[in-house]
Each structure stands twice: as structure tokens, then as C-alpha cells.
């Protein structure tokens, strides 16, 4: 297991923010990574913008549109990570659909990940059944392939967990990413089911947007992932988003550890 990822679950409940790279531009992304790293983030999920993000709700879809409109490409993204890696040792994982990896070239993509200091990848449209597509290449470059568990996984949990690396991304509820008013107990049962068969850390994401929810989910998971609520701040404040995002990250990390 990637040491940096393992260490992110060592400071209490992990707080994992997600941002879309290049929204509103890559300079802001870099500033956000630095600020979040010093304000309570334990690991940062970096979204590679995609033309057709089928697992995302409207908030992150719009971030992808903004990021692509600002001229973000995979090449520029690797350059940005290389620069920021010189200043921070926080674990960084890419969240990307499979097509940008496949079309860039699996070898070329994952060797670049290793070279610039990316620790893992999350590929939301590559389920267990298709994991062979990238697993070997990830392994040869020491990049953790992070698997997802959903409320519908049920009897698949053991199989998915058995090949998990880094941490397990538990999807809190049905549907796409986005903020939710209420979230039921499905997530708790799911995490308990995962814990009974695996010792890989479980982080919960999808729909977590406020301190109450952070506290609620952190009570039974090893970490929480927050995307849309942060992306919404970025949309609101544009290039001035660094401070409000840092304060939000700080408050969510504190809430997650209030239990």
C-alpha cells in the first residue's frame, strides 16, 4: 500500500476534499491544494475535467465545463502537479473517467502519475469487472487503484474489497454527486458490511456538504469526502475562492473529529 495514502488515515478521521483541476484555472487549483493541505485536508482528490462526467451532478458538471473552457489539458495538469508536489507532501489522487487515461495511453498516463508524485487514482466508470484494464499498469508504477462501493454493491462488497488498495470509496447513496438534504442509514450498514470483510480504510462521499453531515458520517467511517460543497464555493468566489475554501475545509475536518 502507498505509504502516503496510509498515513492520511493516521490523524483522526480523514478529511478528503475534491476539486476539479483548472476550475477556474490551474493557478487557482495550485493555490487551493497548498491552502487545503495546511488547513486540515488529509488527502486531496483532484478531478481531471471530462466532457461527459456521467457520475456527476450539475455542480461538478459545470466545474468540468469551466475547467475545459479555461484550456485545461492532461499535460498541463501533470505540469501543475509536478510544481505543487515540490511544496507539499499531502497525498494526491486523481479522480478521472477512464477515457482520458485510455486515450492518453495507460503506460504514459500512469508513468507520468508516478513521475509527478500522484499517489492513487479513482476511476468511477471502471468497476471491479473491468479492473484488469488498469490494475497491472497501476501496480508497476506504484499507483494505488482506489475502488468504489455503492449501496447496491451488497454481495459484491467482499469481492471488491478483496482487491482494494489505498482506501475504499463508499458512495453514500444512490444517484450522482451533489449536495443532499437528507441521507438515510444505508451508508452505515454499507460501511459495517465492508468493515466485516476488509481492513482497508473506508471513506464516504456523495452528498456530504455541512458540518452536521460530516459529524454523522465520520462517526462510523474512517474519513469523509466532500466535493460539490467545495466546488460550489469555487464557483461562487472564482479566483478569490482560496480563503473561503480553506476555512470550510478547516471547519469540516474539525466537525469530522468532534465524535
Amino acid at each position: 500500500m502507498n505509504d502516503r495514502i496510509a498515513s492520511s488515515f493516521n490523524q483522526g478521521k480523514a478529511f478528503i476534499p475534491f476539486i476539479t483541476c483548472g476550475d477556474p484555472d490551474l493557478a487557482t487549483t495550485k493555490a487551493l491544494i497548498r491552502a487545503m493541505a495546511t488547513h486540515g485536508a488529509d488527502l486531496i482528490e483532484l478531478g481531471i475535467p471530462f466532457s461527459d462526467p456521467i457520475a456527476e451532478g450539475p455542480i461538478i458538471q459545470e466545474a468540468d465545463v469551466r475547467a475545459l473552457a479555461s484550456g485545461t489539458t492532461t499535460d498541463k495538469l501533470f505540469d501543475m502537479v509536478r510544481e505543487v508536489r515540490a511544496e507539499t507532501s499531502i497525498p494526491l489522487v486523481f479522480m478521472t473517467y477512464i477515457n482520458p487515461i485510455f486515450t492518453y495511453g495507460k503506460e504514459r498516463f500512469l508513468s507520468s502519475c508516478k513521475e509527478v508524485g500522484i499517489d492513487g487514482i479513482i476511476v468511477p466508470d471502471m468497476p471491479f469487472e473491468e479492473q484488469d484494464e488498469l490494475e497491472g499498469t497501476c501496480r508497476s508504477y506504484g499507483i494505488s487503484l482506489i475502488s468504489m462501493i455503492a449501496p447496491t454493491s451488497k454481495q459484491r462488497i467482499e469481492k471488491v474489497a478483496s482487491r482494494s488498495e489505498g482506501f475504499l470509496y463508499c458512495v453514500s447513496s444512490l444517484g450522482v454527486t451533489g449536495t443532499r438534504e437528507t441521507i438515510d442509514d444505508t451508508a452505515k450498514e454499507m460501511v459495517q458490511a465492508v468493515k466485516s470483510v476488509s481492513c482497508t480504510p473506508c471513506a464516504i462521499g456523495f452528498g456530504i456538504s455541512n458540518e452536521n453531515q460530516a459529524e454523522h458520517f465520520a462517526a462510523f467511517a474512517d474519513g469523509i469526502i466532500v466535493g460539490s460543497a467545495i466546488v460550489r464555493l469555487i464557483a461562487k468566489y472564482g479566483r478569490q475562492c482560496v480563503e473561503p475554501v480553506a476555512l470550510f475545509v478547516e471547519s469540516m475536518k474539525a466537525a469530522a473529529n468532534r465524535t
Partner: peptide, 12 residues
């Protein structure tokens, strides 16, 4: 071909 979809849909 294949089945490149989110985990949520695999059961379906």
C-alpha cells in the same frame, strides 16, 4: 464492448 459503468449500476 465490456461494462465500463459506475459501481452503483453494476447490480442492475
Amino acid at each position: 464492448g465490456g461494462q465500463y459503468i459506475p459501481e452503483t449500476l453494476m447490480h442492475a
